[in-house]
Computed example of a mutant assay.
Amino acid sequence: MKHPDNIIEVGSLLPDYMGFIFWEKSARYFDGVIPELPKSIKKVGVFVNETVEVILAKAQKYDLQVIQLHGQEPAEFCLNLKNELDTKIEIIKVFSVDDNFDFEVLKPFEAVCDYFLFDTKGKLPGGNGTTFDWKVLEKYPSSKPLFLSGGIGIEDMEAVNEISKTNLPLYAIDVNSKFEIEPGLKNTQLCRDALQCVSTGNKIKK
């Protein structure tokens, strides 16, 4: 999210999470003021290979409830960050996935983050607007709750509902580029439609 009026509009739909990107190279880079939101919405700060000091400063400034690490941060970094953060702040570690993704890379992160997020491998750390083959997730070896991301559009909601019926510990759906009018500006009606389409047990992050 990026624009105050749009943040308020989408916030009125009560998504479970709302993301703010603090990577300066992103077209969705956020450097504004977050308007007051319903207490049920968790504010997610998205960082790419940032320092612990900067993350801590942003978490305090914007009262973040979740930190999303979208770079090549090693498990040791996640542990150091977790030790410095307020214990109530959750950590999402992102992994870029393609057909050859090796799930063994998850093991060192099991104890140092709260969720895994799987995004489509592409030129950018995120926001590439394409989906990966979800059949890859049949090999998911963990019980850790996961966020599904990567070019998910309103047309994918039926497939999301189906995958939520499997044994995969799908916790949340991360929707972004396919719900935008322009980078950082969400189509509120599409967001509303997605919330109506997705199965009751899933959560939607915008």
Rank of each mutant, 00 (worst) to 15 (best):
K2L: 15
E9V: 02
V10M: 07
V10C: 15
L13M: 05
L14F: 11
P15I: 01
Y17E: 12
M18I: 00
F20P: 14
I21P: 04
F22G: 13
S26R: 06
A27Y: 02
R28W: 01
R28Y: 00
R28M: 06
D31Y: 02
I34P: 09
P35R: 12
P35T: 05
K39N: 14
K39E: 15
S40M: 13
G45I: 00
G45D: 05
V46L: 15
T51K: 12
T51M: 05
V54P: 06
A59W: 01
A59G: 10
Q60L: 14
Y62S: 12
V66G: 10
L69C: 12
G71W: 03
E73R: 08
P74C: 09
A75H: 04
N80C: 09
K82M: 05
E84H: 11
L85H: 08
E90Q: 15
E90Y: 05
I91H: 07
I91E: 00
I92H: 13
F95S: 11
S96E: 04
V97N: 13
D99P: 02
N100Y: 10
F101Y: 02
V105W: 09
K107A: 12
F109K: 08
E110Q: 14
V112Q: 10
Y115A: 13
Y115K: 14
F116W: 03
D119K: 11
D119L: 09
L124G: 09
L124N: 13
G126C: 12
T130L: 13
K135Q: 04
V136A: 06
L137Y: 07
L137K: 04
L137E: 01
Y140K: 09
S142V: 04
S143K: 15
L148Y: 01
L148I: 08
G150L: 09
I152R: 14
G153V: 07
I154T: 10
I154G: 12
D156E: 11
V160Q: 06
E162R: 14
I163F: 01
S164A: 15
S164M: 07
L168R: 05
P169D: 05
Y171V: 01
A172N: 11
A172L: 07
I173N: 05
V175G: 07
N176M: 05
N176C: 07
F179G: 02
E182I: 01
G184I: 04
N187L: 06
T188W: 01
D193V: 03
L195M: 14
T200M: 10
N202Y: 06
K206E: 05
